[in-house]
Amino acid sequence: MKVLLYLEAENYLRKSGIGRAIKHQERALKHVGQDYTTNPKDDYDLVHINTYGFKSWQLMRTAQKNGKKVIMHGHSTEEDFRDSFIFSNQIAPLFRHYLCHFYRKADAIITPTAYSKSLIENYGIKTPIYPVSNGIELSHYGPNPDKEKAFRDYFGIEEGQKVVMCAGLYFIRKGIDDFVKVAEKMPDVRFIWFGETNKLVIPHKVRRIVQKEHPSNVTFAGYIKGDVFEGAMSGSDAFFFPSREETEGIVVLESLASRQHTVLRDIPVYKGWIDDNSADLASDVDGFVEALNRVLSGESNKTEEGYEVAQSRSFDKVAHQLVEVYERVMEI
Rank of each mutant, 00 (worst) to 15 (best):
W273D: 01
N277I: 05
H320E: 14
K23Y: 10
Y123W: 06
P187S: 04
A310E: 05
H97C: 05
V32E: 11
A114D: 09
K55Q: 11
W57Q: 13
L169E: 13
A238G: 07
Q311F: 08
K41C: 04
F191Y: 10
H24T: 09
K65T: 05
I136T: 06
V3C: 09
L99S: 03
F288C: 02
F239A: 08
K302H: 13
N89E: 02
H214N: 15
G19Y: 13
A108E: 13
G19A: 02
I192Y: 07
E331M: 04
Q321I: 06
S300L: 12
D35K: 11
V70D: 03
E324S: 15
K15S: 10
Y223S: 05
V189C: 00
S236G: 11
Y44P: 07
S258K: 04
T37P: 06
R82N: 02
F85R: 00
R20A: 10
S312G: 12
L296Q: 01
T247H: 07
T77M: 03
I125H: 10
H31Y: 15
P93M: 09
K147D: 10
S76Q: 12
W57Y: 11
G168W: 01
W193S: 02
W57D: 08
K117G: 05
P215G: 08
S234G: 03
R104I: 07
G272E: 12
C166P: 01
S255I: 02
H97N: 06
K117R: 15
E79K: 05
V163W: 03
K105F: 14
Y6S: 04
Q321Y: 08
D45M: 01
I136V: 15
G195P: 09
I129R: 07
F171G: 00
L200R: 13
T51F: 03
F239Q: 11
F229T: 06
S84T: 15
L281G: 11
Q64H: 03
F54M: 12
V285H: 01
W193N: 00
L256W: 06
S88D: 06
A291D: 06
Y307A: 09
R152K: 14
Q90N: 08
V189Q: 01
Y98E: 05
V164G: 02
Y44A: 05
Y36T: 01
S133E: 07
S258E: 07
E159Q: 15
G249V: 10
L292S: 00
F315I: 07
P203V: 00
G306H: 00
G195I: 01
S16N: 10
E254K: 02
K317N: 14
S88E: 04
D146E: 08
F179Y: 11
R14G: 06
D188R: 01
A257Q: 05
N293I: 00
I332M: 12
I274P: 00
S258C: 03
S234F: 00
L256S: 08
Y12S: 10
K212W: 06
